[in-house]
Computed example of a mutant assay.
Amino acid sequence: MSSARWYLRALGRNPLVRLSDRLESLAVLAVFVLALLAVPVAMQAGHLAYDARMQTAVEQAHSRHSVESVVLEGSRGLPADFDSPAYVRVQWREGTRLRTEQVASAATVETGAPLTIWLDQSGKVVSAPLTATDAELGAVAAAVSVWVTALVGSVLASVVVRRGLDRARARAWEHELHVLAHNDDGWANRHI
């Protein structure tokens, strides 16, 4: 809390406050302002992502249908690599013919268990259509990522400004210490 007070005091009219302190305070204030201004932009990004995902969900709901199948060869235990799904062999009836195919399963499935699979209009096995919950989660992820990106960008810009100001202040101190150490009756401060 004391650093926040310092930044606010640096923006005041105190004649002892250096220009570099005022610039640093403005940079910190800009981070807070940009964080607030990024909220509506992030919300708009979330709304756009939600609309796009809901449109995809509606299209997928019209072009995909579920089929109940029976697992012929179940998965054996948990997969060693959690990034790759376990594949099981399933069988289902499509009209008058019996189809057998290998499909991805998110969970461990025993042989003989029923499993719902999704087919597109051509009969190809596809993933389940997006739901409204999927669209909401995607929208939240888009909004949060836009806001965090704006916040991180403004914080990094503030850090760059502060480092530049710190270097300038260090050079000013070095100059003053040099003048103090090598007192030449004011000749070092003489403007040419």
Rank of each mutant, 00 (worst) to 15 (best):
R53V: 00
V28Q: 03
V58Y: 08
M43P: 04
G186E: 06
D166Q: 14
H47E: 14
H175V: 00
P40M: 03
L119E: 01
W173E: 07
E174Y: 03
L72S: 03
A27N: 03
A128W: 10
R13E: 09
T56C: 09
S2M: 11
L98V: 10
R76F: 05
P85W: 11
A10L: 02
V159Y: 07
D120I: 00
A80H: 08
S2K: 13
A104I: 02
A128P: 12
V155Y: 09
V160I: 07
D185T: 11
S2V: 10
G138S: 10
V159S: 08
A172K: 01
L78Y: 02
G12H: 08
R89P: 13
S158K: 04
D81G: 07
R89G: 07
S75N: 00
N183E: 13
R18S: 14
A106K: 03
A139P: 12
P129C: 07
R190V: 04
V109N: 05
E136S: 12
R13A: 13
Q60S: 08
S105D: 02
S69A: 05
A57D: 01
G12R: 10
A45H: 14
V70D: 00
T108N: 06
R53A: 05
L19T: 15
Q60N: 07
H62L: 12
S20L: 09
V155S: 07
E59P: 09
Y50R: 15
S2E: 11
L78F: 06
Q102G: 06
V179T: 09
A188H: 14
L23W: 02
A132M: 10
L36E: 06
